[in-house]
Design a protein around this nucleic acid. Structure first.
Length: 510
RNA sequence: GGCCCCUUCGUCUAUCGGUUAGGACGCCAGGUUUUCAUCCUGGAAAGAGGAGUUCGAUUCUCCUAGGGGCUGCCA
């Protein structure tokens, strides 16, 4: 058992886009697999045909690929344990359900959905809020345990719809050791006879999940805490199938919580609180609604992954910046927290800023190209790199470099009103005029030259930086704030700088 | 309501019986900067409450409270 090859699976249901909680579950599975030299499998659990969203499966694959945590096995990449889509495995499950019936651990139930609704409503009226189909109530229902054998047989042969339910024992303690939570135990009296096989011929999650994990030789089931309540049921299934010796170990992850109010982060929270909940942008195929994604918002996948990894896990050191390889090296389930974690968007932005700074100017210039193209701006690579160097430390996103430094690419068409009002006067105008003249005579136009020239001017005029600087900046950039003016002018070059200064004198009030 | 899980600064977290309870984000103040951003320095900020075990509990146990999950022929 301990020598068993590590094989983990991420098993989403393709009912929509994967949200960041799902991505984190996938990430932890991936990290655990890679840490132990094992396999990371993507299994699509599409047993609920009514909730299926056709484009969801591809979205899930795209999202994992973007994050750099592509599966080793799956429908799209192949593998020796396929098919990896449960609807393609449909033929497999019935036999297992039958085995359970044969061994007395499951039974046929003929109660219709309407029957069950009625019973639940009545029970509620009688003061029982959650009626369950269990080892007591099943005696009053229509199933192969209560019906005469001949009638069961007749109904089956007549093609009457039925489901197969697990038959839980009375008053039995089910215990298992969770890798994150330790011993968890539940009494079967508090569990119900879950449906294993639906009337549409599909297995439910519970059956398909156990059968597939077994067949695919899964060694560790790492999934969200929402599955903790049904884990005992799964334990029992392994027991009834006689698969206890190869039963995977369980690890139930803490949930990602909404930053405001209560509850777990859900798909419906997309953009509601001013941040995406999806890794990639998603267009709802029915409504056409678009939900934003981290990728399209300009987040680096490294930052996104790093941030997600830290929501529920930490290395125990003070290091916070981890590449995917660093994460693989450091990850362990023992260091995963038990309590749910609230998502913090500020921290996510901070992570992105950190990664942005780790890129070289040349790399960032490259990344900026599409944005420039979109805005129909052409500039030499050297110039773009110069802009990056000047602006990058005030940027969180690549795109910020453009929005913050737009005035470097094209001369200002408007001038900041506040600065205009406060700093532009006859003196400022005269200073710009004088400086333009001095600059025109410079043979070398480096930041250093400009600074010297500027400072000499200040001395000559016996004035301070504060009297001249703001007007000068306004004239050249149209802004009231920004990086060093000397750096800016040096980057723009003599011709452009002078042109802008002249232009401002014509355009700004006298 | 029932069952299960959880509980350290606002948030993410460190601490595996003895610490001035540490770090990060955010926030505030000061410094650097012509300005803004960056950067630097500093600051405010936490063991839910109550019992017990122990020489000693944030750490172990129990109770209470609070939070979360589940309670479907959904996953």
């Amino acid at each position: 058992m301990s020598n068993r090859r590590v094989r983990v699976r991420f098993a989403p249901s393709p009912t929509g886009p994967l949200h960041m909680g799902g991505v984190r579950t996938a990430l932890y599975n991936y990290l655990f697999a890679k840490k132990h030299g094992g396999d990371f499998i993507l299994r699509v659990e599409d047993t609920d045909q009514t909730r299926l969203v056709s484009s969801a499966e591809q979205y899930i694959i795209d999202a994992l690929n973007w994050c750099g945590i592509s599966p080793d096995e799956g429908q799209s990449v192949g593998g020796n344990f396929g098919p990896y889509r449960q609807s393609d495995r449909k033929h497999l499950y019935r036999d297992y359900a039958d085995k359970l019936i044969a061994s007395g651990h499951a039974y046929y139930a003929f109660d219709t959905a309407e029957d069950l609704d009625r019973v639940r409503v009545m029970a509620k009226k009688a003061g029982t809020p959650n009626w369950q189909y269990n080892n007591i109530t099943r005696s009053q229902m229509k199933n192969s345990l209560t019906l005469p054998e001949a009638e069961t047989k007749a109904r089956l042969e007549a093609g009457e719809p039925y489901v197969i339910r697990i038959k839980l024992p009375r008053n039995e303690e089910v215990k298992f050791e969770d890798l994150i939570r330790g011993w968890v135990s539940v009494n079967t009296n508090n569990m119900d006879d879950k449906v294993l096989f639906k009337s549409d011929g599909m297995p439910t999650y519970h059956l398909a999940n156990i059968v597939d994990d077994h067949l695919m030789e899964i060694s560790h089931v790492i999934r969200g805490e929402e599955w903790l309540p049904s884990a005992p049921l799964h334990i029992l299934l392994y027991q009834y199938f006689g698969w206890e010796s190869t039963r995977p170990q369980f690890a139930h992850l803490p949930l990602l919580l909404k930053p405001d109010g209560n509850g777990k982060l859900s798909k419906r929270d997309g953009d509601r609180l001013g941040f995406p909940v999806f890794p990639l942008q998603w267009t709802d195929p029915e409504t056409g609604n678009i939900s934003s994604g981290y990728r399209e918002q300009g987040y680096f996948k490294e930052a996104f992954v790093n941030m997600l990894a830290f929501l529920g896990w930490n290395p125990g050191t003070e290091q916070e910046l981890f590449s995917l390889n660093d994460l693989i090296e450091s990850f362990s389930l023992e260091r995963v927290n038990k309590a749910g974690a609230k998502y913090d968007h500020d921290k996510t932005k901070w992570f992105n800023q950190q990664y942005l700074r780790n890129y070289s100017d040349a790399q960032l210039a490259d990344l900026l190209l599409p944005t420039l193209e979109k805005n129909q701006i052409s500039a030499t690579p050297a110039f773009v790199e110069g802009v990056v160097a000047l602006i990058k430390e005030r940027a969180y996103f690549v795109e910020d470099i453009f929005t913050e430094g737009a005035y470097l690419f094209s001369a200002p068409s408007e001038y900041d009103e506040k600065t205009l009002k406060k700093k532009w006067n006859a003196d400022a105008r005269a200073h710009v005029e004088n400086l333009a003249e001095l600059f025109a005579n410079l043979s070398s136009f480096t930041a250093e030259d400009l600074e010297n020239c500027f400072k000499n001017y200040l001395e000559a005029k016996e004035t301070g930086f504060g009297k001249v600087g703001p007007g000068f900046r306004l004239a050249v950039t149209g802004k009231g704030m920004g990086p060093s003016m000397f750096e800016i002018c040096a980057l723009l070059g003599k011709e452009e700088t002078l042109k802008r200064m002249q232009h401002s004198l014509e355009k700004l009030p006298a």
